[in-house]
Nucleic acid binder design. Structure first.
Lengths: 196, 196
DNA sequence: CCAAAACGCTACGTACCGTATCGATCGGCG
DNA sequence: CGCCGATCGATACGGTACGTAGCGTTTTGG
């Protein structure tokens, strides 16, 4: 039988350890943020010795970075839809949903302060999250321009900030809900400026 | 001579103590951010006993928030200008400038994670910072509607999020510069949707 | 089966937290 | 002027978490 190719193979100890540490870190981050994250709690939660964690990551900042990278892997590309408006709504809806209904929102809340003082962390976030989303917006805009929907001089970077900024503003500061209507409302408020 | 009405009167001990603490906190915040702020460093820098600090603020987060609120209150008032567009640009420019050129940006970066998990802190921030700015936007919008510039059904809360969201997005995540042109670019990108 | 690698466990020294205690200092008030 | 309450400085303390070191134990792979 091809079981070993269908089910994940029994992981070796090193892999099990790493998975357990990252999983415990995710849980603790979503519960109380990076501020209250401690290596000793991660050790207790994961059933791993504290020293084992320090053998893999030099500090809890690098551990948080690993969790962030893990999240990025699960970010899905955007489906091609009927019109730039709907495509942008779908893209933004994905972000709103991820931040509002998964622990990614809590993790982001916990990590954001670290991004300010940790250059490695902020660089990784910009390269693997921000750049990714700017790229998606760029693809959508390009198609919108070709279809004659959007203005050829559309500023992709600015549009990206106008779309995602309010989402994170709610998550971090204003405390507003990340509900299903938010994405469409933001897109419909911003897009007319860039429409032909 | 009217010296006592020109120069500040000699403050009593309580006032001197509080000023020294807040000043030392400001200095330390601007040097290394909230992340590396410790009560014991504030005590050493200000020449005040650690216990004296704890008699006034229950934690270093409340201390940092006190400094933040101090800044916000000296920034918010908006001049009445010629047209909603210019008034909004002025308002947003004030925020951009404060976040970009003073320690307020650093303080915000350090506090934002705590805002997610500390209810007292987030409530205080929403009441004393967010609500203040929403109110300013509301005043401007009201005048804009009366002058026939803006649509009567303008969503003030949404407009506020669309304006300030991208600013904080740069500060927290994208790492973009908080330059002088940013405020006008955001306003000009968002406002057409709400213009008659 | 046996070395090498990875891990668990315990024990440090350091830093900072937040609190308690007590003597010293300041400030208003008779 | 002198007193008394309020405030402050100094010190000590228990507690948490950091990051490192030493050593015995388990797992892995040749």
């Amino acid at each position: 039988m091809a079981v070993s190719s269908v089910l994940p193979a029994a992981p070796d100890r090193a892999s099990r350890t790493e998975v357990a540490i990252l999983e415990a870190t995710r849980e603790l981050l979503s519960e109380s943020g990076v501020r209250h994250l401690t290596v000793e709690k991660v050790a207790a939660r994961s059933g791993v010795a504290k020293t084992t964690i320090y053998r893999r990551w030099r500090s809890k900042d690098e551990l948080a970075l690993a969790v962030l990278i893990d999240f990025v892997q699960s970010i899905v590309p955007v489906a091609r839809g009927e019109g730039a408006r709907n495509e942008l709504v779908a893209l933004l809806k994905g972000a709103v949903n991820a931040l509002g209904t998964t622990i990614m929102g809590r993790v982001m809340q916990g990590l954001v302060s670290e991004l300010a003082t940790n250059d490695d962390l902020s660089q990784a976030f910009r390269e693997r999250v921000v750049a990714l989303r700017v790229g998606e917006v760029r693809k959508i805009v390009q198609r919108g321009i070709e279809r004659g929907e959007l203005r050829p001089d559309t500023d992709v970077d600015l549009l990206h900030e106008l779309l995602f900024g309010p989402v994170y503003y709610r998550l971090f500061l204003s405390g507003g809900a990340l509900d299903r209507k938010l994405a469409a409302r933001i897109v419909d408020a911003v897009l007319p400026t860039f429409t032909v």
